[in-house]
Design a protein around this nucleic acid. Sequence first.
DNA 1: ATTCTAAATTGTAATGATTACAAATAAATT
DNA 2: AATTTATTTGTAATCATTACAATTTAGAAT
Lengths: 134, 134
Amino acid sequence: MITNKLNKASLKQTVQREEILKYILAGKIHPTADMIYKNIVKIIPHISRTTVYNNLKALEKANIIKAITITGEDETRYDAVVEPHHHFVCEKCGKIYDIDICCNNFLKKNIEGHSINSVYAYFKGICKECTKDV
Amino acid sequence: MITNKLNKASLKQTVQREEILKYILAGKIHPTADMIYKNIVKIIPHISRTTVYNNLKALEKANIIKAITITGEDETRYDAVVEPHHHFVCEKCGKIYDIDICCNNFLKKNIEGHSINSVYAYFKGICKECTKDV
DNA sequence: ATTCTAAATTGTAATGATTACAAATAAATT
DNA sequence: AATTTATTTGTAATCATTACAATTTAGAAT
């Protein structure tokens, strides 16, 4: 499956690349480059931060992952779901959830005369889990 | 009007602060900190970059302006319109337009169990003006 | 109008994420 | 197995933003 994605993009298969992609795909946690690095260094101790950044760039370019930037946060996060969808950012725990809403406005190809290529949207608030805590 | 906003937020009125706010309010260009600095240094030659940053922070905290971050860009942009609305980012000229759409999803107080505090949304594409160019 | 105090301004130095670069290594093609 | 080309790696640079401490100023109090 990972092999497939990489082949299709004619990206070479390397342990580093596989682990990076596997990690992003696995947890739905929308990790930062640092989270990815810290996690993979446990498996591949000699991996370089630069490799992580290089691969994130390459995977993004190949449309295998997507970058997400959140106002107020200073690290880019990465999403393995490239199909259009939205996010919910918890202001308490920092977790990012995928949100599946289909908004009419986001199917438009045009808005106020401008030609739309892509849509970015997210909510901020307190998540389900954190609401529980008293 | 600017005086009003500053008073209401009990922020002191300084030439620097006035110019910064005036600049953001004026053009609807959603400037970066650097754009603000470069413009105001023409009027107040001894202004410091730090002052620009300090004021952006203060004005944002007072809810007089809003920060916008766009995936793929590395500088924060600032908006004088704090009422909820969306944006259109032109991938050719870089301009950011205000978009007035009211989406049902964005009036919700809750989504998939999470409690919503705020909404961020923008489109990317080619703007009206740039579409003209052959 | 002068004094006072907290807030604002300033310059410099630090921070921290990301990128540039060049040498070494490894994947995939022949 | 040899070759080619992408990938990995470490180090150093970049660039936006922030920390900090000294100086100055706005606006309140006198």
